[in-house]
Amino acid sequence: MGILPKFIDNAASKPAQAVGDTLTDLWNLGIGNHVSLWSKKQELRHKHNFEDYVYKVQNKTQDIPEEFLKEPELNIIGPAIEASKFYIDSEQLREMFANLISSTIDSRKFSKAHPSFVEIIKQLSPLDASILVNFKQSNQFPAIRVDASNVEGNYVVIQQHILDFNEDKVKYKAYASSISNLQRVGLLAVDYSVRYGELEYYDYISSHPVLEEANKMLIELRDIDPKFTKLDFKKGICTKTPLCEDFIEICL
């Protein structure tokens, strides 16, 4: 392990040794040790997750009727297997990788299994994955952006991507960040130039925790520029993309 002399020196500080342990585990993982991922303290947990991952893959592949079995697409299954070992500590993500791997040998699904799905899964958080579950049953949801507006028609965005399916509305900023990430990877699109059905679909904003922060920011803006006089709620739609439809069918 000559590549990590800074961290394996017995005289190194405890934080440095801890970093060394983690880097060593990752290095060993890359050359075949697929059980110890982060450190010895996490070995049992990781081993359990690894075994659960193997079980999921076995079950999903064995459930495919023989007449639908096909040779896997190497450009998908190879990167999927290689990448998945770093993400199996998340139940949602290992489920996605297991679904993706099984789809590559299923003639009913493989045409929708895009090579980009490997990279997309790698860039999702567990919260991102949980948000996508909502789009299994619906193509779109109402979305709200909160602006502070002045008398001249100018505005400052206070918070955007406020959706009603948030399980914990207090964490609306985390949800908004996840929506932004899902936009970035091409799974969701948010448009504030169109509206979702009737105005009543946006009534959830009237009791939303974001209002407290928005009113505080409006007061701060007014102290700087008295022309800022009100909050506006821009009503829009959050929609899943065609790529998302395939991703959900294959990976969720």
Results as ranks from 00 to 15, higher is better:
residue 74 L to D: 13
residue 74 L to Y: 12
residue 20 G to N: 04
residue 53 Y to E: 02
residue 63 D to G: 02
residue 73 E to C: 05
residue 22 T to V: 15
residue 86 F to R: 12
residue 37 L to W: 11
residue 55 Y to E: 15
residue 104 T to H: 02
residue 79 P to H: 07
residue 86 F to H: 11
residue 90 S to W: 03
residue 51 E to D: 13
residue 121 I to T: 08
residue 87 Y to E: 09
residue 65 P to W: 02
residue 69 L to I: 13
residue 61 T to A: 00
residue 55 Y to Q: 15
residue 68 F to L: 05
residue 81 I to H: 01
residue 101 I to G: 06
residue 17 Q to P: 00
residue 76 I to Y: 09
residue 103 S to Q: 05
residue 56 K to L: 15
residue 29 L to M: 14
residue 83 A to H: 08
residue 25 D to E: 13
residue 47 K to A: 08
residue 47 K to W: 08
residue 82 E to L: 15
residue 16 A to P: 00
residue 87 Y to Q: 09
residue 91 E to M: 07
residue 61 T to P: 01
residue 119 E to W: 02
residue 103 S to Y: 04
residue 49 N to V: 02
residue 35 V to L: 11
residue 114 H to W: 03
residue 107 S to G: 01
residue 77 I to T: 10
residue 24 T to V: 10
residue 85 K to C: 08
residue 69 L to E: 09
residue 122 K to S: 13
residue 73 E to S: 12
residue 24 T to M: 14
residue 59 N to A: 13
residue 26 L to P: 01
residue 122 K to C: 14
residue 45 R to C: 07
residue 75 N to G: 03
residue 100 L to E: 07
residue 101 I to P: 03
residue 100 L to Q: 06
residue 120 I to G: 01
residue 37 L to A: 04
residue 70 K to A: 03
residue 122 K to D: 08
residue 96 M to H: 05
